Simulated scan of single mutants.
Amino acid sequence: MSEDAKREATRGQIILGWWSRNIGDRESGAARGLAARLRRAGPVAVLAEAAVHDLGRALGVKDAAALIRLVQVLAEVREHSGKPLAAALGGDPPAMSALRFQRLMRVAEGDLTDALRRSIVMADRRCNVADLGQDMLHWSEKTRSRWCFQYFGAATPDALKDSADAIDEEISQ
């Protein structure tokens, strides 16, 4: 396993662990309350939550907008499963139409959080939390391309599984 892959696996475990401890157990009043505040809050109110800063420190995230997007999207997920969100949206029959999925892949970064939150609801609020979290931190052409393969249930090319920087350069050429 390459160093990049190890680092990403670790980040995924950090994200899943944070989600499980802080907002994953919806039987807990504290978890329900935090998830509700994160779903409804504006950017400053999200950053006013100590748990958000705990996640940011653990991941080494310095970009406030990326951290806000990450926790607001994760707050919509109610159940962790092995299936990535894009795969949960696809299938036969798909939970999200192909046309709507295409619009999701083209959405502007400023509208990404709301679009993904609506998508999570369509997937019965169930997906792979670790994968979703990593994708939120590295939303790029590579990520969107991988989601397309997952949505249609096709095997993801090895090139899309490698480091984000190398793939972004390859796709843009």
Rank of each mutant, 00 (worst) to 15 (best):
D162G: 10
F152P: 00
A115I: 03
R7W: 10
R117A: 05
V71D: 00
K142F: 01
A45P: 02
K62F: 08
G24R: 01
W139T: 05
D165W: 13
G24C: 07
P157R: 02
S28K: 13
L85D: 06
Q134H: 14
R125A: 10
R106H: 05
L104Y: 00
G110K: 14
A41H: 05
R32M: 12
S28G: 00
V52S: 07
S20V: 05
T10Q: 15
Y151H: 11
L47G: 08
L16T: 04
D114A: 14
E49K: 00
T156F: 02
G42I: 06
A159T: 13
A159E: 12
S163A: 12
S172N: 13
V73M: 04
S119V: 04
A87G: 05
Q173D: 11
A95L: 06
P157Y: 10
G82E: 15
Q150K: 08
N22R: 12
R103S: 13
I68D: 09
R32P: 07
R11T: 04
A30E: 10
Q72T: 09
G24I: 03
R21M: 11
A30C: 00
K62Q: 14
S145A: 15
R69S: 12
E79A: 06
G110S: 12
G29C: 05
V107C: 13
L59A: 09
K6Y: 09
A87T: 05
M136Y: 01
D54P: 00
E79D: 04
D63F: 05
A154I: 02
G133L: 03
A155N: 07
I14R: 10
A30L: 07
A154G: 11
S140V: 10
R125C: 10
R106S: 15
P157I: 07
D25P: 04
N128P: 01
R39Y: 05
E27I: 03
G91W: 00
A95P: 03
L34P: 05
K6P: 05
G82I: 02
I23Q: 05
C127H: 00
G90D: 09
D63P: 12
L38G: 07
R103E: 10
F101N: 07
R117F: 07
